[in-house]
Design a protein around this nucleic acid. Structure first.
Lengths: 338, 338
DNA sequence: GGCTGGCACTCGGTGCGGTGGAGTGCCAAT
DNA sequence: ATTGGCACTCCACCGCACCGAGTGCCAGCC
């Protein structure tokens, strides 16, 4: 195992490198941190750290930079989430509090997160399958044309057009609406399919076709929308990194445009409720030089969606994690209130 | 006025520069285009064009590049919109046809446009004020809690929570819903305010407060949402330009994140229904080295929103304009069908 | 054994002068 | 009005030397 001081050296290297964006040498380290030892000693420690794969040098006779493995150790053992200050927390709350609807909440969250972390922010809309149904509405638009509107407890609304196989009377419509709602209101979307399974049977033969159509549209909606929506922002922050970066920025922007990739990115969340993926830990190779900090958020105790930040592996992990956690917490509150 | 041949030279310069991204010289021009004159003659023409401000040289003894004014002349007089080929048109239609709801239509449109033009695509959601009301729905969520849902003929849906000053009975609710719809359904959103003005008066005193609250929420929604929503995509395409571009790309990304700027960007549309803003013609200075091609689209004859493309001034104008026009046309069709 | 100062070495970054080539402007001739 | 010829300009590229930060290693010291 590495000695205490060597870990301290690694921590110092990470901190300095994050700050300066330049490889850090032994002399600079001893000057900026009171390690109580000479540069020569630090050099020995660095050699050991390099041997173990925590740091690397871009070329002989340059300073060291942390490897993905080094950042991993730093995040896991050498640092703690940095909490937001009181004023910051208030500002977050105030900013989110003015939102008028779900789109607005998500939009504000993205902007806020991008601004706080000065990185790219990604916010997933509250998922349907993990939400509960607040209300199902059926509107008659024309003789054989219906509109289905789904409303979740998180304020999300989905709608679909339905062409009925046969005209559907206003009373049948009211009937279906009432029965649907009594069965599914307040229940989780995931449970809807089995809750409505036997519904067509209780209708007259002539209406049964339409009822089935409506139900299958409803179920389709649940499936399609499991492919979640999300919003991103702060892409301009990408330009703050590496001066080399046509090469760096291109694949990142490309990855950010693919919903599927992004959703995977937010990925699983660990014990403490927060996930940090560093460099090559991200499956998508365009993101091999970025890190992702993500966390679930929700109106109640349970997570209904995720949000996170994408930035260079060389990022301020404690600060970023603090901001992400704080924002998630307040978004949850806002959703619960609405 | 400039002679015919000089215009021809300008056209050749624009085409070559767009293709090669490098300043074009007199010799290269005569080789790649059959102008029927010698390089020396072309040099004279170039000197004249430069005198008039249509082209410029980055430095003495380099080739010429078109100025904004040069592109302007090119777009206005020297070229025509390039129509899409049959297969391309079919592909566009097929791609858009699979959309399940408005978000999906807009999302697909953005991706399509970005891919066709290989530039940044911007698509505005159909505006509320220029749409007509399909239906207004009022749902009772709790004793004194309502949800207002607005549905437009373009498939857009807006919802708002309403806290009532007093409990509101189911019959009153049905009454209000019916009266509201009979007044506004099929009418333009812009006309709604005056159509509902006298509605509270026809209700009992006890319900009047709630009715007013509902109406004011409705009107607020119209106002807030006049601040339109939009979607952008294809930002990765920005990296294809100028190798110099931390400086170039940064302000563009920043501008793209500001809704307000973007909406202004789509701007007015000229006679032919298409607007082209070149370089400094864009008010926002981050976009001084980009051009914007925009056009209105709509389900009927009338435009309900706009879409467009943002790219370098050095872009393929005929092709881009063709793609933008074609996409707008097909999106209009899709919206009309739904 | 671990820490330190000293020292030779490596290697990327920077500044400089020379060269080549593309492109221009001008002019005299057609 | 067009053209070929010609001198000139200036950027891009190349090789070179130099500088300095940083390293690895070693001998000495605690």
């Amino acid at each position: 195992m590495l000695s205490e001081r060597r870990l301290e050296v690694l921590r110092a290297i990470v901190q300095d490198y994050v700050g300066t964006e330049e490889p850090v040498g032994s002399k600079a380290l001893t000057e900026r941190h009171s390690l109580g030892v000479s540069p020569a000693t630090v050099r020995n420690d660095m050699a050991a750290l390099e041997e173990e794969g925590f740091i690397a040098q871009p070329h002989t006779s340059a300073g060291r930079i942390p490897t993905d493995k080094g950042y991993r150790l730093f995040v896991d053992k050498l640092t703690a989430v940095k909490p937001m200050s009181g004023p910051e927390r208030r500002a977050i709350h105030n900013f989110l509090d003015g939102a008028v609807d779900l789109d607005d909440v998500v939009g504000r969250t993205v902007r806020l997160l991008a601004q706080l972390t000065r990185q790219v922010a990604v916010v997933q809309y509250p998922s349907l399958t993990r939400s509960t149904v607040r209300h199902v509405e059926l509107l008659s638009l024309a003789a054989a044309r219906l509109m289905l509107v789904l409303i979740t407890d998180t304020g999300r609304v989905e709608q679909r057009m339905i062409d009925c196989p046969a005209p559907f009377g206003e009373t049948s419509l009211a009937d279906l609406r009432a029965r649907l709602n009594s069965r599914v209101a307040g229940r989780r979307f995931a449970d809807v399919p089995q809750l409505v399974q036997d519904l067509p049977e209780s209708f007259d033969a002539e209406d049964r076709g339409t009822v089935s159509t409506v139900l299958s549209t409803l179920l389709e909606t649940l499936v399609e929308e499991t492919e979640e929506r999300l919003m991103i922002g702060g892409t301009a922050n990408l330009t703050r990194f590496g001066h080399d970066f046509p090469l760096t920025i291109r694949p990142v922007l490309e990855a950010l445009e693919e919903q599927v990739v992004l959703l995977k990115l937010l990925g699983e969340v660990n014990d403490s409720g927060m996930a940090v993926r560093i460099g090559h830990e991200n499956a998508h190779e365009g993101l091999n030089s970025t890190s992702v900090v993500s966390v679930g958020y929700g109106s109640g105790g349970e997570a209904v969606a995720k949000l996170g930040v994408v930035g260079p592996t060389r990022m301020d992990y404690p600060g970023t994690m603090g901001a992400v956690r704080a924002v998630a917490r307040y978004v949850g509150q806002i959703l619960a209130e609405s």
